[in-house]
Computed example of a mutant assay.
Amino acid sequence: MEGAHVPLKGWQQAAVALGSALGALMDPRRADLIAALGETTGKPAFQRVLQRMKNSSEGKEVLLERPHVVSAQVSHAWDLPESTFGSAYV
């Protein structure tokens, strides 16, 4: 996935955000549009979360370890009830 990031100018980010928002409103099942909207508008929220992680001992540990979520660790999520986060994740 290295090199997959394409830097955008401010007006390009605004265009992607607006197009994604409109597209997601027309079809909320379009997870790709919702993800694009989050990526283009979520930097302030990401910075706040990152700072909170850096300020907590558990957050610092996660940032240092950089654990990977692998199928074997979350395979039980397939058996969770439909209304749970785990079910939505899988």
Score class of each variant (00 low, 15 high):
residue 70 V to F: 08
residue 82 E to N: 07
residue 42 G to S: 02
residue 23 G to F: 02
residue 39 E to I: 01
residue 69 V to D: 07
residue 78 W to K: 13
residue 73 Q to I: 05
residue 65 E to L: 13
residue 73 Q to N: 12
residue 29 R to V: 05
residue 78 W to R: 15
residue 82 E to D: 13
residue 31 A to R: 15
residue 1 M to H: 09
residue 24 A to V: 02
residue 28 P to H: 00
residue 22 L to P: 07
residue 31 A to V: 15
residue 60 K to S: 02
residue 50 L to P: 00
residue 14 A to Y: 10
residue 43 K to S: 06
residue 81 P to Y: 06
residue 75 S to I: 12
residue 39 E to N: 06
residue 40 T to S: 04
residue 9 K to V: 03
residue 47 Q to V: 01
residue 18 L to F: 05
residue 82 E to M: 02
residue 8 L to Q: 01
residue 84 T to A: 08
residue 79 D to H: 14
residue 73 Q to F: 11
residue 55 N to K: 10
residue 37 L to G: 03
residue 64 L to S: 11
residue 13 Q to P: 00
residue 60 K to W: 01
residue 45 A to V: 05
residue 61 E to Q: 10
residue 26 M to G: 13
residue 14 A to M: 11
residue 48 R to D: 05
residue 5 H to Y: 15
residue 55 N to D: 07
residue 42 G to P: 04
residue 72 A to F: 10
residue 75 S to P: 01
residue 55 N to S: 11
residue 48 R to M: 05
residue 30 R to M: 03
residue 6 V to Y: 01
residue 62 V to I: 13
residue 7 P to G: 08
residue 73 Q to R: 14
residue 72 A to V: 11
residue 27 D to E: 06
residue 57 S to K: 15
residue 60 K to V: 10
residue 51 Q to W: 04
residue 76 H to K: 06
residue 81 P to H: 05
residue 58 E to D: 11
residue 49 V to I: 13
residue 26 M to D: 13
residue 8 L to V: 07
residue 21 A to D: 03
residue 41 T to E: 09
residue 4 A to Q: 14
residue 67 P to R: 00
residue 62 V to F: 05
residue 83 S to Q: 15
residue 90 V to F: 10
residue 6 V to E: 00
residue 42 G to D: 03
residue 1 M to Q: 13
residue 42 G to E: 05
residue 58 E to V: 08
residue 27 D to V: 01
residue 10 G to Q: 15
residue 21 A to S: 02
residue 10 G to D: 15
residue 9 K to G: 07
residue 25 L to H: 11
residue 4 A to D: 14
